[in-house]
Design a protein around this nucleic acid. Structure first.
Length: 707
DNA sequence: TCCCCTCGAGTTCA
DNA sequence: CTCGAGGGGA
């Protein structure tokens, strides 16, 4: 084929085809009112593809033809999200949902000033203090795969899965094949198009597509997909874009990074803007004024959700006004301005065949139900945790019983109850173990008000516990020892090469024995030893968080390590000194202190120290500067009216200097800054002997700090 | 003293 | 993901 330069007519024809194809896509997916048949669409697409093939310089980056035939990729690159993709808080009942609404109403009423109530979705009744209702956006919670689409200067540059919320997999090559997702944003003028736009939404597979896909797979002798969601996820993970299932759909429902920061006033407003850009949104979205209307939407939606042709598992309510969303903010996991109401999970019956006992890293004995395999919410379930033996007794479960199970949050199977009417004659009661199934030590029974809750194996050297503690120790969020996963730990413990945490750092002395193990070779052993060596540099915070000390996990370890700076300082501290650390209370402090001065604790730390593990941590910036800034590391409370600052501004300023600003005076308070008309806080500070400064003294100290 | 929030621990399947 | 419980603000 000779690549002759295209004629003007051909050039125009190609441009026209591209415009038309984009427009037909938009009509189909955004407006849900196609004006041509799929076949006609395919004919136009083919004509364009032919033109582009004959004249490669006609091929544009955002051409609809680019949706097919991209090159397969090697692996998935993990990329960070500019703005984290948080998850949404769930509730399953009306009262909880109402509680969320009331909380939100209260939080907003507090912030609401008369000035911002102009055109505000908060309907003010009886004065500015009493906001009556909030406008809520109500949208179906589509059961698909969350995606973040990044458009730069109008072109789709990247599509990333949610991943862990901070980083996800780059699946751009597959997403480009999805017709519902525009390769370029539509804009009547350049100026209207944001330089950067990240749209978040859900890719999903309609039921009829799913049925068709499985019909084809069956014909081809392939394994069938479990459900549309798995199928969608499977599609996005294809290395070859040609294998992505056709007919996936997409609804946008949120925003990530936007440049320039858009001045949308409401959620509804930006959804409308997204539609203008050509991004589909769910037509079933509506708004409600207040809780009762939102609840009616939910009930109504529940009635008709079976007719949508795609899977939904609930309704998401969002505070519509973006300014209100900003006021509400987010917890570390999810925004406070939205909540998902989930419809009750599917319940299924099966037969309980037996109960296994697992020994956890804390020694807790957990009963685990073994059942006849049964399909629940898309996966085959054989096991379910029964939490503890107290629960088994309360539910009066017997082996042989027919039991009702469901999946909590569609993920973790739970046994709800036994069907007593169908209990066979020979159903066997479940006897709680009196001894640890692994080390045979007599159990300890924990009770609450004489009711049994959990049973524990009290033997700290129990091999099962040790194994679990080692797995935890080596875990990614703890010491992050790459090559030491649960399989390897099992092997090493069984071979007698690991009998304590400290042994991990003596493994290099036993290299020959390791190499001799099954499915272990020189290279793997050296990998392991290198991983262990590297883990020595993790620092005290990780070490503390990895040792399974009661009440001390990752963040507790961090707080303590930053508070003391080194193991030596921590060992010298008494319980009160430990409890003085921010976020550490008396119970955690006592537990840690006990551990530090127990035989087991002394041994493990001596071992780690001897191995050269880093047992120090840079202290929190706050206390490191303690000699320089008079505020660093101190708990400060503000009260009264200040001349030169608003209280929030001052709080921010002091925090930047390393102070911890809190709201109420207690014996832990180091300093009270009292402005005019200070009230009860001043009295209390005087009573507790807390240092008090007036504004003049504050300004003086700030000036010194600055200079 | 009462709530709200966060953390820790246990957990299933592909 | 969910539970229970510790920590800390109101």
């Amino acid at each position: 084929m000779s690549a002759s330069p295209p004629t003007d007519a051909q050039r125009e024809r190609a441009a026209k085809l591209r415009r038309e194809l984009h427009e037909h896509n938009r009509r189909y997916h955004v407006d849900a009112s196609p004006t041509i048949t799929d076949q006609q669409y395919d004919e136009l697409l083919e004509e364009l593809a032919r033109l582009e093939a004959e004249h490669p310089d006609l091929a544009a980056e955002d051409s609809p033809t680019r949706r097919v035939g991209g090159e397969p990729i090697e692996g998935f690159e993990t990329v960070p999200h500019a703005v984290p993709m948080l998850s949404i808080d769930n509730t399953y009942d009306r009262d909880e949902l109402r509680a969320w609404y009331e909380r939100t109403l209260k939080a907003l009423a507090k912030e609401q000033t008369p000035e911002d109530s102009s055109g505000s979705p908060l309907f003010v009744e009886g004065g500015p203090e009493q906001a009556a209702e909030i406008r809520l956006a109500c949208e179906p919670k589509v059961d698909g795969v969350a995606l973040s689409l990044r458009y730069e200067n109008g072109s789709l540059v990247r599509a990333v899965t949610r991943g862990d919320g901070t980083r996800g997999d780059d699946v751009t090559h597959n997403v480009r094949t999805i017709r519902a997702i525009p390769l370029a944003l539509r804009a009547s003028t350049e100026a209207e198009r944001p330089a950067v736009l990240e749209a978040r939404g859900e890719v999903f597979m309609p039921d009829d597509v799913f049925t068709e896909v499985n019909r084809q797979r069956e014909a081809e002798g392939l394994d069938l997909f479990m459900n549309p969601r798995n199928s969608t996820a499977g599609s996005l993970k294809q290395k070859d874009p040609a294998k992505v299932v056709r007919g996936l759909r997409f609804f946008a429902h949120g925003l990530g990074e936007v440049e320039p920061a858009e001045a949308f006033a409401s959620h509804g407003g930006f959804l409308a803007a997204l539609r203008e850009f050509g991004l589909p949104t769910n037509p079933a979205i509506d708004t409600a004024s207040g809780f009762d209307e939102a609840w009616r939407y939910i009930e109504n939606f529940d009635q008709r959700r079976g007719e949508l042709g795609y899977a939904t598992d609930g309704v998401v309510l969002k505070v519509d006004r973006l300014a209100d969303q900003a006021v509400l903010g987010a917890t570390s996991k999810s925004p406070r301005w939205c909540v998902a109401f989930k419809f009750p999970a599917e319940r299924v019956r099966t037969v309980l065949r037996g109960v296994e006992v697992q020994v956890g890293k804390t020694g807790k004995l957990t009963p685990r139900a073994v059942m006849d395999p049964v399909l629940v919410a898309g996966t085959t379930v054989r096991h379910a945790t029964l939490h503890n033996f107290g629960e088994v007794a309360r539910k009066d479960l017997r082996v042989g019983d027919t039991v009702v199970i469901e999946k909590a949050g569609e993920i973790i199977p739970q046994v709800i109850e036994a069907v007593v009417d169908e209990r066979p004659e020979d159903a066997k009661p479940i006897a709680p173990p009196d001894a640890c199934p692994v080390c045979a030590t007599g159990v300890q029974i924990e009770t609450v008000e004489d009711q049994e809750t959990a049973r524990y194996c009290p033997n700290p050297d129990c091999p099962a516990q040790l194994r679990e503690r080692l797995i935890h120790f080596a875990g990614r969020k703890q010491m992050d020892i790459d090559a030491l996963g649960d399989k390897t730990v099992h092997q090493l413990v069984d071979a007698g090469l690991l009998t304590s945490i400290g042994d991990v750092f003596r493994l290099h002395e036993k290299r020959d024995a390791i190499v001799a193990l099954d499915r272990m070779a020189e290279k793997k052993a050296d990998n392991l030893l290198a991983g262990i060596e590297a883990s020595k540099a993790r620092g005290l915070a990780r070490v503390l968080g990895s040792l399974t000390i009661r009440h001390v996990g990752g963040s507790g370890g961090k707080a303590i390590a930053r508070g003391f700076g080194s193991l030596d300082a921590l060992r010298a501290a008494d319980v009160e000194a430990i409890a003085a650390v921010d976020d550490i209370g008396p119970i955690t402090a006592a537990s840690l202190h006990d551990f530090l001065h127990s035989d087991a604790g002394r041994t493990v730390f001596d071992d780690l120290s001897a191995a050269g593990v880093d047992l120090t941590e840079p202290m929190a910036a706050a206390s490191r500067e303690s000699t320089e800034s008079p505020f660093a590391g101190r708990k400060i409370v503000l009260t009264g009216t200040l001349e030169s600052f608003t209280r929030p501004d001052l709080a921010e300023k002091l925090e930047s200097l390393g102070a911890k600003v809190t709201g109420s005076v207690s014996k832990n308070t180091d300093l009270l800054i009292a402005g005019e008309a200070a009230g009860s806080k001043l009295d209390k500070a005087a009573r507790l002997g807390v240092e008090v400064w007036d504004e003049a003294k504050l300004l003086e100290a700030l000036a010194e700090t600055a200079g």
